[in-house]
């Protein structure tokens, strides 16, 4: 409970600044609606927003799982083959350096304007941070541990599963913590550009129709969802890579 106090204070200060700026600068309701109007819009459309949010979370988590799994898989290949790493790293860097907004038309062209293109966009954003983190983790395995297992006659596969994978977990979680909010960003951008479902679509649609309280409400829901997913990942990290901060 004590840990919640600074978080609640932070939210209260932000809400206070929002209202103070809005009232102080006499901003019109359509540009900067009051928190009461935003809360009202959220209440009125609660059922609808909940379903759209679930849709976006589904796309994000699917993209996160696929992108992270691919990132880990390619990191394993990087460890196994220097040639593959030298051949594939520049390509991975090029994908990372290309803005998602520039790739989106291609992704929509290939995968349609439905759920699949959003999953793909989320995957693309998740792939690189997980690849780098997992590769660094696998590479930085304590050499003494590897030598110890080698002396016991461990096979390469045993060293991989008993030493390299557990050693990589703390670093992998650092990558996953970067990737998870990115997954949400990928899905929302995809929905914003071309979709008929999801919270990104709600933001775009309410923006066109100047339903700004609903737009801000949907925006708040995306941010809050990102925070909750991030906290859930931290809990998982504490359970799985429990030795990290000790």
């Amino acid at each position: 409970m004590r840990k919640l106090v600074p978080i609640l204070v932070g939210f209260a200060v932000c809400a206070g600044i929002w209202e103070a700026v809005r009232v102080g600068l006499k901003l019109p309701e359509v540009v900067s609606p009051s928190l009461v109007s935003i809360a009202g819009a959220l209440g009125d459309k609660a059922g609808y927003l909940f379903l759209e949010l679930l849709f976006t979370i589904g796309e994000s988590l699917a993209g996160f799982l696929i992108g992270s799994t691919l990132g880990c898989f390619v990191a394993f290949l990087f460890i196994l083959s220097t040639f593959f790493r030298q051949a594939a790293y520049p390509i991975a860097l090029m994908i990372k350096a290309t803005p998602l907004i520039a790739m989106a038309p291609v992704v929509i062209l290939w995968f349609g304007s439905g759920l699949l293109s959003k999953v793909v966009m989320s995957s693309i954003l998740c792939f690189f941070p997980v690849l780098v983190a997992c590769f660094d983790g696998l590479r930085s395995t304590n050499q003494s541990v590897v030598e110890l297992l080698d002396m016991y006659g461990a096979t390469k596969s045993q060293i991989f599963w008993k030493a390299r994978i557990p050693s990589a977990l703390p670093s992998l979680f650092s990558g996953l913590k970067v990737a998870l909010p990115m997954a949400l960003v990928g899905a929302v951008i995809g929905e914003y550009l071309s979709a008929t479902r999801g919270i990104g679509y709600v933001i775009a649609n309410s923006s066109y129709h100047l339903k700004t309280p609903l737009m801000y409400g949907a925006l708040f829901l995306v941010s809050a969802t990102g925070l909750i997913l991030f906290l859930a990942l931290i809990l998982m990290e504490k359970k799985i890579a429990f030795w990290k901060d000790k």
Partner: peptide, 22 residues
């Protein structure tokens, strides 16, 4: 001391017994 931080002390002691050549 080379101990695996994700294993309990007992798990660390058992480690060599998990390999056939030992």
């Amino acid at each position: 001391p080379t101990l695996l931080p994700w294993r309990t002390m007992e798990g660390n002691i058992r480690l060599p017994l998990e390999f056939e050549k030992v």
